[in-house]
Amino acid sequence: MRLGSMWRDALSALVREPATQQYPFERLQAPEHLRSKLHWDLTNCTGCGLCAKDCPSDAIDVIVLDKKARKFVFRYHVDRCTFCSQCVMSCPKKCLEMANDEWELASLTPDDFLVYYGNEEDVETVLAAAASNGADASSTDTE
């Protein structure tokens, strides 16, 4: 039985750096294997859509414009992503990769959460189609 058994911690803390930090001014180094924003590489993609099928949170749409000409657009909903990396595992051609440094993903506008990957003209086609539909791009379901 002792009174104040944590006094040593209290005293040593006075001469030690605080464990807490003021976040926006000081940032911790992200670990090497951190899973953050998803990136897609068109080169090997076959448009099979397994990534979209296995995604537990509907964060991925693979929009096939022309299968033969391999014109694919990859739409990624950052806000829905749970960073489980199942898509990376499911992809048979290893087209997907999760960055380890883009972890500050908060945003004030929903537009920032919709990311398109693909050739520039293809993305523009998809965007134009979405705009002409009048519906917001996120609700159109294309696979």
């Binding site: 670990p31 294997h33 595992m89």
Partner: peptide, 21 residues
């Protein structure tokens, strides 16, 4: 845990048939 799996919570270390990390 973050260093091993890439996430601090809901690590998603498992997948059907094994682990990812």
């Amino acid at each position: 845990l973050e260093g091993i799996t890439g996430n601090r919570v809901n690590y998603s270390a498992n997948q059907l048939g094994g682990v990812k990390c």
